[in-house]
Structures are given as structure tokens and as C-alpha cells.
Write a protein that binds this DNA or RNA. Structure first.
Lengths: 211, 211
DNA sequence: TAGATTGTTAATCGATTAACAATC
DNA sequence: TAGATTGTTAATCGATTAACAATC
């Protein structure tokens, strides 16, 4: 139960806190102060305390924060205790890499199905999930009831794919296509990932160094 | 030649401008006003004009912006006219997907080599580049002189890999490992991509909907 | 208790938005 | 010329940082 509207800047920092606290826990830290954590994460202690206090009081004056307890709390805030069922649409290079590379459980999801149109790969397995003909998706959704999807389809297929997924009850999209989805219009949630944009900023920084 | 220090917020928006202008150009737009562009990109016209004016005067009063000229200019600002030679370290699932999926030329890079330690995949080709034994990297660097690298190695190998790459003259890193590289310390540039963090924010938004 | 560090309010800084004169 | 839209300054808003009383 969050106090007020949480700003996007704070939300974007939460997963990073969660990761760093995981590292600390792994390295045997029991407690940590905002000052120490700030140093490790290249932030300010003030910011860290402000961020945490959006959600409650997790520390103890004179002591600091209990690492594993704080991590647990942030995990709950992020919804990592419930595993949202997710499907992958498009098992090309990128889709396959994501499905096999990513630990869905640790970020709040459970991959329950993989779909493609390409007959040549249908039936093959990625991890322990077989690639299924996308024509069987409607039936699949009736029983498995996934609510989120990874979009790894060609740009030309995005519009139709999204429309049919929305009709099948999918509400959240992790979108790797070059077409941006807008969360506002429908009651859908979209996280648009533009790997190209990320690399482009690297180009900027490399080249702007030369004044 | 940028006027002053450009804020990070602006830099992060530049690739998106570039993409949208590309779409507009493809769709036959000759000119566009900041108001129109703002609507398409869900920004404000003010912000767009402010952003562009960090770098110069690209528009014309009473007319708007010439789409292809503006795009060309932003491309130059982003350094997309020079193709920085880049190597991929680690040809697992993700590395392979990036190497084959991404149009490096259009984001200012040229993929010139792919390296791995796994004898089983050395010699195989991704696109038209053969996977090479990483032991041959020092020789390769002497002639090809790459200055940037994609890091797709296991977390355990990151530290040593980065150290040797820096010694070989690599200065810019597109980092997909879970270990963050800090741009400050050395004169290196790092773009840390945390796909898990991106998905985690989706989990937050799905779950925080339920108040 | 004294020392440390949080939670929280106040001050500052930067980014976004609004307004408008310049000008095509 | 009149209308449109930029470039740019000023106002607002939000996010970050600093300060400090509360308290463990």
C-alpha cells in the first residue's frame, strides 16, 4: 500500500536497490547505512532515505538498515512475491535469448508459453518450454490465462499482434519491437525497450568526447 | 560542437527523436512543427524546441523543421556518421541475438569481430563474422583497432575481461552483464543495460495497479 | 549516556512548461 | 501583409540535496 503517487524516477531506481541489496546479502552484510549504500551505488544518502521513505520506515535510527529485511520489503513493493504468468511472442534470435537467458522468477514473472508462426521452429524447445504455433494461442489463454507478454515480433506484425493479445486478456507488454506502445490509451501497461537507443547514446558519448 | 554541457535527459531523448524523424521521412513528411512532433511523441512542443536549441537552430520561423535535414543534423550530433569499430565478447544466446538482430550501421557502429572461449562454437559464423578464440584478441586488436565492445560474458569473467580489454585499447562498453561498470574512474565510457531491471519495473506497475 | 543514523522538513538545483518577441 | 511557428527568456514544477530534530 504505497503512500502517494510514486514518481517514475524512484520506480526506476527500485530494481537497482534490490540488486545491490542482493549482492550485499550474498557478501554477508547484515546491516548497511544509507551513507555506505550511497557510496557503493554512486548516489547520495539523502536520496536513498527519501526513496525508501516513499514506502515506509525500513530503517532504525543509529543503526541503519537490515539488508535482507530491506531487500525483502523492496521485493514486495516490486511485486516479486507474485509471479505473473508471461508468454513470449516471437522465438527468433532475440526472443530465444531472452527466454533462455533471463531468470524470470527473480523479477516477478513465470514464463508459461512461447509462440511463433514459423513452422520450422514450432515444436522445438527453449529451456523446458516448446515453441507453439501461434494459432493455438487463443486456446492456450483460456486455460493458462497469461496476463503479460514479451513482444519479439517483426515491426510489420506488431499492430495486429497487440490487438489480438489484448483481446485475449494480455494487459502488460515487454516490447522489443521498434513500434512504441502507449500505456495511456488502453488500460494496458507497456515497457518499451529500445536497445538501439541505448547503443546510440554510447555513440554520442564516444564522439562528443572529441569536443 | 555542442554549446554547453548537454544534460543527460536531453541525450537520452535524442535517439528517440532520430527514430521518429526517420519514420516521418519514410512516410513522406517534408516538414513538421514542434507542435505536431510533440503530439506524435507524447512530449510538449516547448520541450522539443528547448532540446533542439541545445545544439543550434534547426528550424525556420513560421514553417517548422525540415524533417530529413533535422534528422541528418541529429544524426551528426549522435556521431552516427562515423562508424565506431566494435567487437562482441561472448557469443552465447544474448550475444548472438544482438550480433544478428541489430543494425549496427544505423546506430553509429561497425561490428568487426566476435570472440568467445567456448571451443565448440569457435569457427561458427554469426552473419558474416566468424566466432574467434578470445586468445587471438590481442593480435586482432593490433590491426583492427576496435575501440568499443559489447560485453556478454558470465558475471564471473567480467572483471578480468574488462581489465584486458582496457589494456588492449577498448574504451567504450555496452555492458549486458550484471556487474555495473563506472564511467568515472577510468577514462572509459560504459552503457550498462539491465534487462532484468526493465522487466522488474513492469512487475511493479502490474502489481501496484491493485492499489 | 554519547554516538550514530534515521525520518522528515526546508533549501537548492535542474528540468519542464509557458509565454512572447523575432521572423520567416 | 497576416499567419504561423520558431528561438529564447521567464515562470513553474519536481527532484535532489542539505540540515536537523527524533530516536535507537
Amino acid at each position: 500500500m504505497s503512500k502517494n503517487a510514486i514518481s517514475n524516477s524512484v520506480i526506476r531506481r527500485l530494481p537497482r536497490y534490490y540488486r545491490f541489496l542482493g549482492e550485499l546479502e550474498k557478501n554477508g552484510y547484515d546491516k548497511i547505512s544509507s551513507r555506505e549504500l550511497a557510496e557503493k551505488m554512486s548516489l547520495t544518502a539523502s536520496q536513498i532515505r527519501q526513496d525508501f521513505n516513499c514506502f515506509g520506515e525500513f530503517g532504525q535510527q543509529g543503526y541503519g538498515y537490515n539488508v535482507s529485511e530491506l531487500r525483502r520489503q523492496i521485493g514486495i513493493i516490486l511485486g516479486l512475491d507474485s509471479k505473473t504468468p508471461m508468454i513470449l511472442i516471437g522465438a527468433g534470435n532475440l526472443g530465444t535469448a531472452l527466454a533462455s537467458h533471463l531468470d524470470f522468477g527473480s523479477v516477478g514473472f513465470r514464463l508459461v508459453g512461447i509462440f511463433d508462426t514459423n513452422k520450422e521452429i514450432i515444436g522445438k524447445k527453449i529451456g523446458d518450454i516448446a515453441i507453439t504455433d501461434i494459432e493455438r494461442l487463443p486456446d492456450f489463454c483460456k486455460t493458462a490465462k497469461p496476463v503479460s507478454a514479451i513482444l519479439c515480433v517483426p515491426d510489420t506484425a506488431v499492430e495486429k499482434t497487440v490487438e489480438s493479445l489484448v483481446n485475449l486478456g494480455i494487459r502488460a507488454f515487454w516490447n522489443f519491437t521498434h513500434c512504441e506502445l502507449h500505456s495511456d490509451s488502453e488500460d494496458i501497461i507497456a515497457e518499451n525497450v529500445h536497445l538501439g537507443d541505448s547503443l546510440t547514446t554510447l555513440s554520442y558519448r564516444i564522439n562528443s568526447e572529441k569536443h
